[in-house]
Simulated assay, not measured.
Amino acid sequence: MKVEQLVREVYPKLMPYSSQLADLPVEEMKKILGKQQVFKLSFNENPLGPSPKAIKAMQQALQTLNLYPSSTGTLVQQKIAEIEGVLPENIILSNGADEMITMVAQTYLDPGDEVIIPEVTFVQYLASAHLMGATPILSPMKEDLGIDLQAILDRITTKTKLICLCNPNNPTGAVIPKQELDAFFQQLPDHVIVVIDEAYHEYANGPEYFSSIPFVKENYPVFVIRTFSKIYSMAAARLGYGIGPEPIVHAIHQVRPPFNVNSVAQAGAVASLEDQEHIQNARRINDTGKSLLYAAFEELGFKYIKSYGNFVYVDTGYNSGELFTLLAEQYGIIVRDLSGYGLTTSLRISVGAESELAALMNALYSIFHK
């Protein structure tokens, strides 16, 4: 028997992480494109960088790399619990939010179980369902690309185990109104757990956004996922966390690898949480950048969605694959092509530094004025 025949049955449905141009490090992009300068606006990275206090704490943590870290990340748990008004037992850490999504799937999904996922959202939910041999059930979006909770409720069956929501949603940046979430949970059957990815929570200021942590406190079957990769700008350190009722957190701990979050990341997380001034600066830069993009899109006649994240969804009316290639090859600007969702004229553009956004806007003006 060939070794290719020994892999699990789910193998043909799984894909390695993309090696497409938009997913590569900047230095590799430069080599491929043959450019001295590349502007990467495809990964929703924070241009401000991490808190200086976090950098200092992480440097200090390097002195004890010979020692194993806290397996559960006790100090991080305590700090998050203090901020969110929950118990440390309600919190579990992960090696980035991606690992948390995978651990939830490993904890709850058996082959044949169903996972309901909106058609336009973060792709890792689909990947984790396939990993466990579960069946993804894609739910249609509203006409404005908002998440349609009623459509999700209509697709619940006795096989449904998980529902995955992203709020604010990636790649649209839209949020789910509180009244819709309230009504949704009132109708939810007791055999379903709702996973709510709040990776962009800290960017989502405004009365329209509502975090689902209060549902956790009321012991709804809700598990909220957050990350230090976005506003805290610690993407390379890989640290995510989940907040949920104790029975859910306890169950996920059974599949969590020991020491899955290193001591350097833990030290940076605690310091980041304590540096609220840095967070306010990051939010202010992001709001300014979004305003610049909105103004440019309006001048160019593009349709866009008001974003509660650090990126903006835009429909240029032009073939997105061709526009992606043009921006990359001629201008060294990398954005996210959304044609994989069937959105063949749409892009997701990260809010980068002012110089990066200026380069993008100049490129768009040049292309579309021609």
Rank of each mutant, 00 (worst) to 15 (best):
E298C: 03
Y108R: 07
Q63A: 14
Q124P: 05
T160I: 00
G244S: 10
N286H: 10
E28T: 12
D113W: 02
I117K: 00
A183E: 12
I152H: 02
A271V: 10
Q186H: 11
E89I: 06
L360Y: 04
S346L: 00
F215G: 10
L357W: 03
K306M: 11
N319M: 06
L48K: 11
L41Y: 05
S307P: 10
P258V: 08
G332M: 07
L138K: 01
S272P: 08
S291D: 14
L126Y: 14
Y203K: 04
Y209D: 03
N44T: 14
M29G: 08
E99Y: 08
I83E: 15
L149N: 02
Q106Y: 12
I163T: 04
N66K: 13
I279M: 14
S19C: 09
S307E: 08
A134C: 08
A57S: 15
A237K: 12
Y220I: 06
A127D: 10
Q78T: 10
F184D: 06
P207L: 13
K79F: 11
N167D: 11
K159A: 11
N44G: 14
V104F: 12
S94I: 04
V270I: 12
P168K: 04
A236Y: 09
P189S: 00
G309E: 07
V123A: 14
S320P: 13
G146Q: 02
L153H: 11
N262V: 03
N169R: 03
V335C: 07
L188R: 02
H253E: 13
K290E: 09
A358C: 00
F122I: 09
S307L: 08
G340N: 12
L293M: 14
K13A: 12
G321D: 10
V38G: 01
E202Y: 12
S51K: 07
F122S: 06
S51I: 05
G317W: 01
D337L: 06
A271I: 10
A328V: 08
Q150S: 08
N310W: 05
A54R: 00
A363R: 03
N205L: 11
Y11A: 15
V175R: 01
I248P: 01
L75E: 15
A54D: 01
G301K: 07
L6Y: 12
I196D: 01
P16T: 09
I367A: 01
D315Q: 13
Q78E: 15
E27G: 06
V175K: 01
V312Q: 08
Q106K: 15
P245M: 09
E84Y: 15
Q266G: 09
F215M: 13
P50Q: 04
I334N: 05
L14R: 14
L149K: 02
P118F: 00
Y17D: 11
L347C: 09
Y200L: 14
K35M: 15
Q179A: 13
P257G: 01
R284E: 14
V7C: 13
R8I: 08
M361H: 05
T316C: 07
A267I: 03
P245Y: 00
K31Y: 09
E299Q: 15
S346K: 03
K30F: 07
S94T: 11
M29T: 06
A251F: 00
A271G: 13
F184K: 07
V314D: 05
S18M: 08
P69M: 00
Q37V: 09
L347Y: 04
G321P: 11
F223R: 04
L153T: 05
